[in-house]
């Protein structure tokens, strides 16, 4: 792949990769870091990419794996934070607990609701979270999602159904009558 070809690929997928990472990590700086890693990996692994596979599917897979790895690393850091300083020495802000996430692409009238949704989304198991992000936020079809997740369409439907049920339960604690 030449640099020009790589740039075309980057322009085509940059927002999908960044948006996927942002949905998982819910922090712009982290999403940028992961997106950077994804494209470096794409460039580095271009020889191993099987031509019969869809390149979009392949890039989505890398983005999801990198995002999940980043999240796992962050979770370990959070656990360790209990043994270290919880607050920033100069600003007294909590280091490991970011503020509520507001996705920049959500409609203005849905901002508050979406904030609750993203909070609850963080508590879902990885596969349910991935099915929800790909179908509801990335707007992929069930068939496309199944390809990316390497499962059947029926599995995607089941994961999404269970994910939504679980989200309902988790969201109840935010409900104020």
């Amino acid at each position: 792949m030449t640099n020009a070809e790589f740039e075309i690929l980057y322009k085509k997928y940059k927002n999908r990769v960044y948006n996927t990472a942002l949905s998982y990590l819910q922090q712009a700086e982290d999403a940028e870091e992961v997106a950077q890693d994804v494209f470096v990996e794409v460039f580095r692994s271009q020889q191993t990419f099987r031509q019969e596979a869809d390149i979009g599917t392949w890039i989505y897979r890398i983005a999801i794996n990198k995002s999940l790895d980043f999240l796992r690393h962050k979770t370990r850091q959070k656990r360790f934070a209990f043994l270290t300083n919880l607050f920033h020495q100069e600003t007294d802000e909590i280091i490991h607990d970011p503020p509520d996430f507001q996705h920049p692409g959500v409609l203005l009238e849905q901002k508050e609701n979406a904030t609750y949704l993203f909070k609850a989304l963080n508590e879902l198991p990885e596969t349910q979270k991935t099915a929800f992000i790909l179908t509801q936020i990335e707007d992929l079809s069930y068939a496309e999602t199944a390809k990316v997740m390497d499962v059947t369409v029926a599995s995607v439907e089941a994961l999404l159904h269970r994910g939504k049920q679980s989200l309902r339960k988790k969201l109840e604690k935010y409900y104020r009558s």
Binding site: R16, Y18, A28, A31, F39, P104, G105, Q110, L117, L171
Partner: peptide, 28 residues
Amino acid sequence: KQEWLNNVLNSTQGIQRAEAPDSLWVKI
């Protein structure tokens, strides 16, 4: 409550993709 839950679950309808920052390409 159920209506609120439905609204929250559907709050990503019509969502626009977030745009990658311009600095990303240079960093890569």
